[in-house]
């Protein structure tokens, strides 16, 4: 009996092993295969098709006919980059070892509204640095903070020292121009210093499936006032079109603060939380995957308008003046008169 069962046991054993072995996917540089893979990744994961009214099947039809088996790598890259740019999304890039495709029209077609050389006329060289922030008193009444990237960490202690340094000032100018984003953690951390009551700042959604409209219920995002040093006096936030992603999120929050005025140009947007994926030839793709809405449940993907629209004036720039900082100083002066 036992001897008879041994072959069956061996058969079962071998079957289990064969079943559990699987061949890895192989590298493919075939243009068609990579085109199909990219289109499918975006089709299943990209989150703004409906909001942007993009017909992705139409995009397939238009670009598929341009893919040939004899295309060179750079030609394929250019074509796929153009296909992604149909989405008009600053968070969407194709990344290879030799190039990065990008959509930068959200600031390229607009005035810069920021010049580091002119900013130096205000900051000088004797400014202080705490974490990723540069700061200085422009006068005895006005403090100035420049935060150039949400990728540069700002600690709670940094913020304590900065705000304490301005304790005798009547207002702060918080300049986030040319800040292309970074960590949302710092957006919350900084905004919480200007808040007096808990507020709903927006909502986040995620995709629950591969359909273009397969989204979760909006999840409420709240901001709680910091328990450390807070600033509940006037703040003017300076913005330009380069304010993107986490900076866009920060401006969304700051616009809701009772003592804050956003001054400058519309922000660049970028409200989709980006994910990464990759193609069979090893190129990486980044795309907006999870939309974040403002408190009114509206998209801010294409930017947030300022409370006070101000552009840099050529004549000011020629005199070394920053129109936005000057406008902020005048605004603060008017506020102080009212106070």
């Amino acid at each position: 009996m036992m001897k008879k069962s041994i072959p069956y046991c061996l058969f079962l054993l071998v079957s289990l092993w064969l079943f559990s072995c699987e061949k890895a996917d192989e590298y493919s540089s075939a243009p068609r295969e990579n085109f199909e893979a990219l289109w499918k990744i975006m089709d299943e994961h990209y989150c703004f098709f409906e909001y942007k009214d993009v017909d992705w099947n139409d995009v397939y039809a238009r670009y598929s006919v341009q893919v040939t088996d004899t295309m060179k790598q750079d030609q394929l890259f250019k074509l796929l980059g153009e296909m992604l740019n149909e989405l008009k999304d600053g968070h969407t890039n194709l990344i290879s070892s030799f190039d990065i495709s990008r959509y930068w029209k959200w600031y390229e077609d607009y005035p810069a509204n920021f010049s580091e050389d002119i900013q130096e006329n205000y900051l000088g060289t004797d400014y202080m640095i705490a974490g990723g922030m540069k700061y200085k008193k422009l006068s005895k009444d006005v403090g100035y903070i420049y935060y150039g990237s949400f990728s540069n960490a700002v600690g709670e202690t940094n913020l304590d020292y900065i705000l304490m340094y301005f304790k005798d000032c009547k207002a702060i100018i918080l300049d986030v121009r040319d800040n292309g984003g970074g960590s949302l953690t710092f957006s919350d951390r900084i905004a919480a210093r200007f808040l007096d009551n808990k507020i709903t700042t927006g909502y986040i959604l995620h995709k629950t499936g591969t359909g273009h409209n397969d989204f979760s219920k909006p999840y409420e995002l709240t901001l709680i006032p910091s328990e450390r040093v807070r600033w509940l006096r006037p703040v003017v936030v300076l913005t330009n079109r380069h304010c993107f992603s986490a900076t866009n999120d920060f401006v969304n929050k700051m616009k809701m603060m009772p003592h804050t005025t956003v001054l400058g140009d519309r922000t660049g947007g970028g409200s989709g939380f980006p994910f990464n994926s990759e193609l069979p030839n090893g190129w990486s793709v980044r795309f907006s995957a999870s939309p974040m809405l403002n408190a009114a449940m509206e998209h801010t993907e294409f930017g947030i308008d300022p409370d006070v629209k101000v552009n840099m004036l050529t004549e000011d720039m020629q005199r070394g003046k920053d129109t936005l900082i000057e406008a902020a100083l005048q605004l603060i002066e008017r506020m102080n008169i009212k106070i």
């Binding site: 994961h45 949302l184 986040i204 995620h206 629950t208 999840y219 995002l221 939380f273 994910f275």
Partner: peptide
């Protein structure tokens, strides 16, 4: 996580 849900949403935002 859910299909397109970030760990930021789960752990930082608490969803």
């Amino acid at each position: 996580p859910h299909f397109g849900q970030s760990y930021y949403e789960i752990f930082n935002l608490g969803n």
